[in-house]
Nucleic acid binder design. Structure first.
Lengths: 248, 248
DNA sequence: CTGCGGCTCAATGTATACATTTTCAGCGTT
DNA sequence: AACGCTGAAAATGTATACATTGAGCCGCAG
């Protein structure tokens, strides 16, 4: 079959199919999702559809309708800003906690190694940047940061927030086409990574918190740029298509 | 029937029954919950049981087992501390946002009115405090605070955190029996309420954030007191019985 | 004794029929 | 025209039978 996304259970296939349709913006915010229709569409029964919707509600992409059933959660421009703010606040907190409570040498070495490898993606030529490697290592950095204070509570909350497609740490990285123009942004981000790790290692809690917040703010600047100047670029940012267009 | 908790659907009854058992500590953290057993126990079919478990996973009281099914989430002492820290950070953020972005006069008047009514629970005699009214108005204050910046994103996150029984703003309020000893604590809390509203109205973002964090810290102090000195009091704090006892 | 293989049972995954609730169009009344 | 009633269609809630998976047990062979 063509669109066989391949997964073990029907629930998983329904989950992935639905998530993709939502993040691609095919289902506008507020759309009521009907189990029967979805089940027929996916050629499965209502049971796994229901299960998939329930998991998407946990992820925050759907919300339960008061009278039962689910509807697509609508994200306005302001909601995206707030979600990025939220990520900044949470990352700031884990940075502060790691500095205040201390962290294991192993974890500190791990995140330092990630920063070192991020240095490697910048080639000698100004235009040489391994974009894919940067994106991947950047995600690793943010995951390692979340794990630094050893608090499952915060690690879990951050994972939840980052699971929203536009709140992923790599969501607003410049795409390959305009990469040279953004090389400087990446370099600044990398500098912030370095200082953040230094602040944590030096037990400077307030500085670590401020740096992590500022670092997350870069995403907001890119978002504002895209929406104000290069609105056509919206489609190049993963998951930004589900943002309600009218409300700007 | 005796334990008819009264709710419209079987799902809701199962939800409430399960939630109660978990928060009362009858099901230790890590306990695997089997659909069949639970269904037989509640005299209903597997379907509403499954639905109820799914909702409890959203609430954060259950987690999905890797191989399918659910288990009771285990909360160690450190997890409770972190959750209170999380509430403080989030309340600090909504306070700062309300100060930075401003808020509507109506909302400001509403929260001011709640503070005014909180003043009323302190009688003329030192021992006169209407505990129940304080607890109720205190919850209202924290709900109003969460709504101040008009950010559904943050309001939602805070509601999620506060739904954990031990993270509710009123969870660690002194119980009636030792109320006179804690009258001063309540008065200090009320003073913080007042200053917090003043900081927000005066657009002092940093001060508002710091005050809200400090205010949430009172819960941590009470938690530490209970676990270190008055461990027998654990049963008097709603939802504290589900905290794993061994790990202190 | 130890390790491997398959058997068995229990648990979750799935489909489906039926029950209940919600919704809303249609219609009558005021 | 606005309101509310009503009944039928559609959607979710529920029970249950069956399918599939996976973990543990048992016995056999080395």
């Amino acid at each position: 079959m063509a669109s066989q996304t391949s997964a073990k259970t029907h629930t998983m296939r329904a989950l992935m199919a639905l998530r993709q349709r939502i993040t691609k913006g095919e289902l506008p915010g507020g759309t009521r999702l009907f189990e029967v229709a979805m089940a027929e569409d996916l050629q499965i029964s209502r049971t796994p559809v229901r299960e998939a919707m329930s998991r998407l509600a946990e992820e925050g992409l759907l919300e339960r309708a008061p009278s039962g059933g689910f509807m697509v959660r609508s994200f306005a421009y302001a909601d995206v800003l707030d979600t990025l703010e939220l990520r900044g606040v949470l990352e700031g907190t884990v940075a502060r906690l790691a500095a205040e409570r201390g962290t294991s040498d192993a974890k500190l070495r791990e995140i330092t190694e990630i920063v070192r490898r991020l240095d490697g993606v910048f080639g000698d030529e100004p235009t040489e940047v391994d974009f894919e490697a940067y994106s991947d290592l950047n995600s690793q950095f943010h995951d390692a940061l979340a794990a630094l204070p050893g608090s499952l509570t915060f690690e879990r909350e951050l994972a939840r927030v980052k699971s929203l497609p536009f709140a992923s740490p790599s969501a607003f990285l410049p795409n390959e086409s305009r990469l040279s123009a953004f090389r400087r942004s990446l370099a600044i981000g990398q500098e912030q990574h370095r200082e953040l790790v230094a602040a944590i290692a030096g037990r400077e809690g307030a500085r670590a918190e401020a740096l992590a917040r500022e670092h997350a703010l870069a995403a907001r600047r890119n978002l504002e740029y895209i929406f104000s100047t290069e609105h056509s670029e919206v489609t190049t940012v993963p998951g930004l298509e589900l943002v309600a267009p009218a409300e700007k």
